[in-house]
Design a binder for these strands. Structure first.
Lengths: 151, 151
DNA sequence: GAAAAAATTGAGCCTATGCTATAATTCTAT
DNA sequence: ATAGAATTATAGCATAGGCTCAATTTTTTC
């Protein structure tokens, strides 16, 4: 198929293959870490809200089945991010708390930034959930500055 | 021991569980679609750049092994997004071209927007790669407007 | 036109993330 | 104190997306 006239043209040449593949590798890595961050962040939210972080609650909020949560918690425990007292709730370790805090800080900045651009509350919440895991320190700082300037 | 404050319906810093789980469901859906978009977008880039989109090229640029690409292309063909002429490269179907165009349009806006905030070229490229798949139409429009205003 | 190089295909394996169904355990209420 | 409800644990299955290794096919080169 020849170049279609209807297609959106690229405005820059393709990046060097080595550079591009490194970028994709980083993106895939971020995607793998995203779910872990979702769990840890949610557990922190539940605990800080004064509740136990039970498997059923986590499952209900993530929209997955409880055995799925059980399996992931086992992995998070192996990774040293949570500790579990059987039939009690889940708790964050020091490392887990650190991950949660960082993740939450990023999340808050991203969501606030979207809101500051006029994005509706509901959409900002959903988009921020996906975006936060792909925002580097540099971009996060740019978001912060943009909000300050806009004030 | 009674169930902690779970039964006490105080103010809710946490979103409603049903609302939150729906958000997570959407986010997971976006994550699943992200890889497909990466492939289709890259294939469009290669073709429009005047090259063949061969498995080896795609593999080199995505940073994965060639059989991994072969498997994914088989899936994309089943999904009706690409057609393959063995040893001749991969081509986009009408549907594939549509997905590629939309994906590229989003990608370009996101990357340009990050650049407009002062994010470095390299970081903007990597972050945009991850972010683009989680940007709704509403947020995309907000990005566009913000760039216009800033000009 | 045959040998070498390159590309594709296929088999088989692994891990991650989801599911259902069922068993075991703990909690709650009578 | 115990039956029933709630919660967690366990087993088994499925799909997606990675990998390596080896076989096949096409292209290139001499």
């Amino acid at each position: 198929m020849p170049r279609t006239s209807r297609s959106i043209p690229r405005e820059a040449p393709l990046p060097d293959a080595g550079v591009q593949s490194e970028g994709f590798r980083e993106t895939r890595k971020a995607r793998r870490g995203a779910l872990v961050e979702d769990y840890v962040e949610l557990i922190a939210d539940l605990i800080d809200d004064g509740n136990e972080a039970r498997q059923v609650d986590i499952a209900a909020r993530l929209g997955v089945a409880q055995p799925t949560v059980a399996k992931m918690l086992a992995r998070l425990a192996v990774d040293g991010l949570v500790s579990r007292k059987p039939y009690r709730g889940v708790f964050l370790t020091e490392a887990g708390r650190k991950v949660a805090d960082e993740s939450r800080a990023r999340h808050r900045v991203v969501e606030d930034f979207l809101r500051s651009l006029g994005v509706s509350e509901e959409v900002a919440r959903i988009d921020a959930e996906g975006i936060e895991h792909h925002v580097s320190a540099e971009t996060l700082e740019a978001f912060r500055k943009a909000m300050t300037r806009g004030r």
